[in-house]
Simulated assay, not measured.
Amino acid sequence: MKTPQDLVAAAKAHVQEVPLAEAEAAIREADALIDVREESEFAAGHIPGAIHASRGMLEFKLAGNPALQARDVKVVLYCKTSGRAALAAASMREMGYLNVKSIAGGFDAWVAAGKPVAKPELPSFG
């Protein structure tokens, strides 16, 4: 029986991971930056400009968004440490997407490098 780590390793063998040093350039060149973490993780902070599509709903969100349906759309994915993003990228490849990358080290590496983080504005009730 395969472990989750086995599945991630297999996915990473077929996915283009972008080193953190090249992540900002890859994001600028992409048509979409997708955060595949859970909603609560996204709400706590995310890479500026990212759209949210949790790993469990990614395929459905892609199918439901006309702007993301072209198979040559350039997408950069990320999650907390890069495992879910690798699985998501592998799934997108199976769907026929041609230009999918993930950020090596994920959001944790992004934050550790001191890169900008967006947080939703909460309403003030004072």
Rank of each mutant, 00 (worst) to 15 (best):
K2D: 11
K2C: 03
T3D: 06
P4K: 06
Q5P: 12
L7E: 12
L7A: 02
A10L: 03
A11L: 02
A13Q: 14
A13Y: 05
H14K: 14
V15Q: 05
V15K: 03
Q16G: 05
Q16M: 11
Q16H: 13
E17Q: 12
P19L: 07
P19D: 02
P19K: 06
L20W: 03
L20Q: 10
E24R: 15
A25R: 15
A26W: 09
R28N: 12
E29Y: 10
A30K: 04
A30M: 03
A30L: 03
D31V: 13
D31G: 14
L33D: 00
I34L: 02
I34G: 02
I34T: 07
D35N: 15
V36E: 02
E38S: 09
E38H: 04
E39K: 06
E39L: 01
E39T: 14
E41N: 14
E41G: 15
E41D: 15
F42W: 07
F42R: 04
A43H: 10
A43Y: 07
A43F: 02
A44E: 06
G45K: 01
H46F: 00
H46W: 00
H46Q: 03
I47F: 01
P48L: 00
P48Y: 00
G49W: 00
I51W: 06
I51T: 13
I51C: 01
H52N: 06
H52W: 06
A53S: 13
S54N: 11
R55H: 12
M57W: 04
M57L: 07
L58V: 11
L58R: 10
E59A: 09
L62A: 06
A63V: 10
A63C: 07
G64P: 07
N65Y: 05
N65C: 09
P66N: 10
A67N: 12
A67W: 04
A67K: 13
A67S: 14
L68E: 01
L68N: 05
Q69L: 03
Q69N: 04
A70N: 12
A70R: 15
R71H: 09
V73N: 07
V75P: 04
V75D: 05
V76W: 04
V76H: 08
L77K: 05
L77R: 03
L77M: 07
C79N: 11
C79S: 14
K80V: 15
K80Q: 11
S82E: 04
G83S: 02
R84I: 05
R84E: 02
A86T: 13
L87Q: 14
L87F: 08
A89T: 11
A89I: 11
A90C: 06
S91R: 10
R93P: 05
E94Q: 13
E94P: 12
E94G: 14
M95E: 11
G96K: 01
Y97H: 09
L98S: 09
N99G: 01
V100R: 02
V100A: 01
S102Y: 01
I103P: 04
I103A: 01
G105W: 11
G106I: 15
G106V: 12
F107E: 06
D108P: 00
D108A: 08
A109L: 09
W110C: 00
V111P: 09
V111K: 06
A112D: 09
A113V: 13
A113T: 12
K115Y: 11
P116W: 06
V117Q: 10
A118C: 01
K119D: 03
P120V: 06
E121A: 08
E121Q: 14
E121R: 14
F125K: 15
F125H: 15
G126Q: 13
G126N: 10
